[in-house]
Design a protein around this nucleic acid. Structure first.
Lengths: 238, 238
DNA sequence: AACTAACAAATTGTATGCATTTTATTGTCG
DNA sequence: CGACAATAAAATGCATACAATTTGTTAGTT
């Protein structure tokens, strides 16, 4: 038999300790459903009966409904009164709004990052930047996109603000589907423009020019917004 | 059944479907619980058994648990694995982070507002500003605070971004308790400083200087943050 | 007397069942 | 032949019931 280790439990007596509870069984369902939606496995506006999702996930309706409520709060699904849940369709307007919010959050992240970022962190971002530049030169869109995401993520992390990071990830999830396809369909000139913008981002970051960086990041995202909305309009002629 | 006035803050998760009545019974519970927590009727970290809340709200556990999941997603409560829900305690760090995010969101709102705001809307905000100035001169803290909130809200609305507004209201709810008391405890010199900041806000808004307004609003909220954290430190000596 | 271990009560997590509302089908009328 | 209405099927919303985990209490041992 496995003996208990009493001293172990006694040593962990901290009250306000973040990152203690996470391996919850219920969160797994939520994550799976979220991923399933974010990855676009359910078409917009499709009515999905609860039973169907239940047997797909191998669970009962109760935890599923709890997860759906959360996803509705996150804005991923729509909960109509007595008519069930649908994947929330993203209108042009929605997409534009979400990109602007992302721009605001990234701008904030950049501003905050400038307050406390270390030389090592900047060096790391520089390294990613040049790696991304390599993908750009080789016209490797996939690699470029991956590094691009990573750089933005690093900036958000450098802000040292968990609430900001959480909100950022939530909004990022909502535009994920469109974001991918929009980037891949991006025009050549826009790509070069984006690359130049990234150079100014890095420059402002090096100088710890928070306010300036905030502006640049917002504008950067605004340009992405324009490209994304154009792409949506082209692929989904409403 | 008694008709309920749909709360503004509750619109976070609600589907805005045109031409559809949404007197959902479940949203009422969510709103009531949220208000009950935001207004500080439950002390931080208190473990509240579900049954107790059930009979308090006169419902069963199922809809209550769904509401708790949503509130957890909003960051108002903490859901520990098999140990139930607690009101999420706000540490100094949490408070500082939340204020910074609010600053970022308000800065974004100001920036966006400058793009499309009408003269009539600016005139309305000017009116509120001078009304607030009156309260300031009469040292009417309550009136000042009310108008202050209203002005910030008007700027957010002028951004014409529903996603931003929703996120803003959500974050505002999380710091509401502290925000009230912090404002009332505000030092005199800080009050005057805040009033001057509001004048620069109005000035930048009149000139539609988006980037500038963004900076000012962030700094304004940063100053509020400092006051709020000081207040929390004074009232809750950790 | 203090600490540990086992037991008991309570609480949470999940599943199932019933009432209400919505959606699909079918039969009738214009 | 098409549209409407009544009925049937299905899905949602809520409540209750059961299983698993946690917490509080008590007895035993060193």
């Amino acid at each position: 038999m496995k003996p208990l280790i009493p001293s172990e439990a006694a040593s962990t007596a901290v009250a306000a300790d973040p990152g203690r509870d996470e391996p919850s069984l219920h969160d797994e369902i939520l994550t799976r459903l979220r991923d399933h939606i974010v990855e676009g496995n359910i078409a917009d506006g499709t009515r999905v009966p609860e039973r169907q999702l239940c047997e797909m996930l191998g669970i009962s309706r109760t935890p599923l409904r709890e997860a759906l409520k959360v996803l509705a709060a996150e804005g991923l699904v729509e909960l109509l009164p007595n008519r069930g849940a649908r994947v929330r369709p993203l209108s042009e307007r929605d997409l534009a709004e979400l990109f602007d919010v992302m721009g605001g959050l990234e701008g904030l992240a950049g501003r905050l990052a400038c307050e406390t970022i270390t030389d090592a962190e900047i060096a790391e971002i520089e390294r990613l930047h040049y790696e991304m530049y390599g993908f750009y030169l080789h016209r490797d869109m996939h690699g470029y996109f991956r590094l691009n995401q990573l750089i933005h993520q690093k900036i958000v992390e450098a802000s040292r603000n968990a609430a900001l990071k959480s909100a950022y990830l939530s909004f990022a999830g909502r535009i994920r589907r469109v974001r991918y396809s929009a980037n891949f369909a991006r025009k050549r000139e826009r790509w070069g423009e984006a690359m130049r913008e990234h150079e100014t981002i890095l420059d402002a970051l090096r100088r710890r020019a928070g306010s300036e960086l905030s502006d640049i990041l917002f504008t950067h995202l605004r340009n992405k917004r324009i490209a994304a909305v154009e792409h949506l309009r082209a692929t989904q002629p409403a």
